[in-house]
Design a protein around this nucleic acid. Structure first.
Length: 587
RNA sequence: UGGCCCGUGGUGUAAUUGGCAACACACCUGACUCUGGAUCAGGCAUUCUAGGUUCAAGUCCUAGCGGGCCAGCCA
């Protein structure tokens, strides 16, 4: 058995290199889709080709669940030297808009994937789809049905009972041809007729009980305008679109499993190239919701501030929050792909950003809830410049100088009048290290006489402790600080999980998922004190505020010289855990 | 009580396809540290149940149990 010493990857990729997705871990085991692909490679099923596609419907914003699908489809293509198309599945003119098309393009590109010139729309295939429908009518495999939506439902039967044939099922080919032509020409009102496939009304799979192929919809389509008033259904579109694009592996989510027999049936009936549909489990994340309906509701009801609210699992939300594409890709990589319906712990996502940002984000000091500290033995007119490391994980990032003077701000949390046993920050009479500066001792606590609030600490610094440890005692605590005279004031937005419940959809009778909205999911902190260099921070830049977390300069609300910081994710907080566990062990 | 799909630590995903259950996250110890960060070392499983086949079963067979999806002219 060989012992693996800790070896590091030779050169970490530069922060903003977002061009090429990292290759999948070599030697890792294959997921079930890769196994199918490799089998197909061996058998020559698709002549060794791999061609996938990402097929969103442009009726909403992409979220982290879509990222799983995007990474899967584009990742598979890259891994097997194939290609991946971007295809908009736009067969329903009532719900789809160009706004969504653009946001989808942007999000896929941001994630780091390139579909080159292979951007397609199902609506581009409308003419071909129509011809195929005519072909089926001529072959006696499709008919125009005059049943209303309600009647169709009645005739369909139930899960346990077979359906009955439509009375219009035996119309002649000529009559069907004529009726379908007139449907296309706009002669009939919405919902008055449909074109249905002549399949099997007693089939145990309801999808095969004479599925609707075309419906009448006098609606303006975002791309085809008013050219059509009949629109094909998903089932009559998707497989054929895959076929036209010569897709090999058509990967979709589990709920389409029941549709695969119909997917196959249309393609066999039409006698066209046959891609293989493969289904995988969609992503679920703890402490959030992922359904389009709920995301839309949160946005529409202004429970969050738009689709790119940093608390949302949308890709634009995560982007604004400060998540990196690298982090999301590595997240998608580590959650795996399977058919089991699972829920991923959100900490896996959080950890993915921490990992990437730990390696790449420059460290700075900022005090969120300032407490003034006066170092009484420090000269009033003196300023020293302390050398600070920009990123201990990246020696090449160098150092910078931070001003230090008689008055500094520290975090309110870093001082405790009644300090618990294991608290080794500042307390009355106690000592603590100011990071990159002196060890100070708290001599006096100044309080507001009326409110009793602590307003200031008067401390003394030990001149012998700059850059070295005292020999006679151990000072374990190190806290961050900002020089009061030099600090720049910034706004900080502390984001937390949107829901307080692991699974907001796991509800008792009469409960609504919105009951579990986290009231503290956003905390806005004004007048935070940051080290001077941050006045020049540019929108989109990411930093680690030492001991606090990773923060990103907001791209919308920051002003020149007045940056607004979004908390991407906190640092792991061991102290919070200790404190929490001692509290719970007391009760 | 119809059909299809799925059950492996707390959460996910593996297991060279019948050969010592591995990896990540979470959690718990400890070491180290001028970030209570990072890092390092260690701990954490009757593979849904019951039978069966086999020298050997997470993997194969049988029965059961549990979960998901489906009755849009949505995708």
């Amino acid at each position: 058995m060989s012992h693996h010493s800790s070896d590091r990857s030779p050169d970490p990729s530069p922060e903003n290199d977002n061009s090429a997705p990292e290759s999948k871990g070599v030697g890792r085991s294959l997921n079930f889709i890769e196994q199918i692909i490799e089998q197909d490679m061996r058998s020559g099923k698709f002549q060794g080709r791999v061609h996938t596609r990402f097929p969103p419907e442009p009726n909403g914003y992409l979220h982290i669940g879509h990222a799983k699908s995007i990474c899967l489809n584009f990742g598979l293509a890259a891994k097997y030297q194939g290609q991946c198309n971007l295809r908009f599945d736009d067969t329903n003119p009532c719900k789809e808009e160009m706004e969504y098309v653009e946001s989808i393009r942007e999000d896929v590109r941001w994630l780091g994937f390139d579909w080159e010139d292979r951007e397609y729309f199902a609506s581009d295939y409308f003419e071909q789809l129509h011809d195929w429908a005519v072909q089926m009518i001529k072959a006696g495999q499709a008919y125009v049905c005059d049943l209303t939506a309600e009647q169709i439902r009645e005739y369909r039967g139930t899960l346990t009972q077979p359906g009955r044939n439509s009375p219009y099922r035996e119309r002649s080919v000529d009559e069907n041809l004529d009726l379908f032509r007139r449907m296309r020409e706009g002669e009939f009102p919405d919902g008055s007729r449909t074109l249905r496939a002549k399949a099997e009304m007693s089939h145990p799979n309801l999808n095969l009980r004479d599925p609707v192929m075309y419906r009448i919809l006098h609606a303006h389509h975002h791309r085809t305008g008013d050219r059509w008033c009949i629109y094909p259904m998903y089932d009559f579109t998707h497989g054929q679109s895959d076929s036209i694009e010569r897709i090999t592996h058509s990967i979709c989510t589990l709920e389409f499993e029941n549709h695969r027999p119909l997917y196959d049936w249309y393609i066999e009936t039409l006698g066209i190239y046959h891609p293989q549909q493969i289904e995988f489990a969609r992503l679920n994340l703890t402490f959030t919701v992922m359904s389009k309906r709920k995301l839309l509701e949160l946005v529409k009801n202004k429970i969050v501030n738009g689709w790119d609210d940093p608390r949302l699992p949308t890709l634009c939300g995560l982007r604004r929050r400060g998540y990196t594409p690298e982090a999301i890709r590595s997240f998608c990589d580590r959650i795996g792909v399977a058919k089991f319906n699972s829920t991923i712990d959100v900490t896996v996502l959080e950890n993915s950003v921490r990992e990437h940002l730990n390696a790449t984000a420059p460290r700075v000091m900022a005090v969120l809830r300032p407490l003034r500290v006066v170092i009484v033995n420090y000269p009033e007119d003196r300023t020293e410049f302390m050398e600070a490391v920009n990123n201990p994980e990246d020696p090449g990032s160098g150092t910078r100088e931070i001003p230090f003077c008689r008055e500094v701000y520290i975090e309110q949390d870093d001082f405790r009048e009644d300090a618990p046993k294991k608290f080794f920050r500042l307390k009355p009479g106690g000592e603590v290290r100011l990071r990159y500066a002196y060890i100070i001792k708290c001599e006096e606590v100044v309080k507001d006489p009326t409110t009793g609030d602590i307003v200031e600490l008067r401390c003394k610094c030990d001149w012998e402790t700059l850059g070295k440890q005292p020999e006679d005692r151990k000072v374990k605590g190190v806290i961050h600080w900002v020089s009061a005279a030099h600090a720049t004031e910034v706004q900080v937005r502390l984001y937390d999980r949107l829901f307080t419940k692991q699974d907001p959809d796991d509800l008792a009778e009469g409960e609504d998922y919105k009951t579990y909205l986290n009231p503290d999911s956003l905390q806005v902190l004004e007048r935070c004190q940051a080290e001077p260099s941050l006045a020049a921070a540019q929108p989109g830049q990411r930093f680690q505020f030492e001991r606090l977390g990773y923060f990103c300069v907001d791209t919308c609300d920051s002003r020149l010289g007045a940056p607004v910081f979004n908390r991407i994710v906190s640092l792991r907080d061991t102290w919070a855990k200790i404190e929490k566990s001692t509290i719970s062990s007391l009760s």
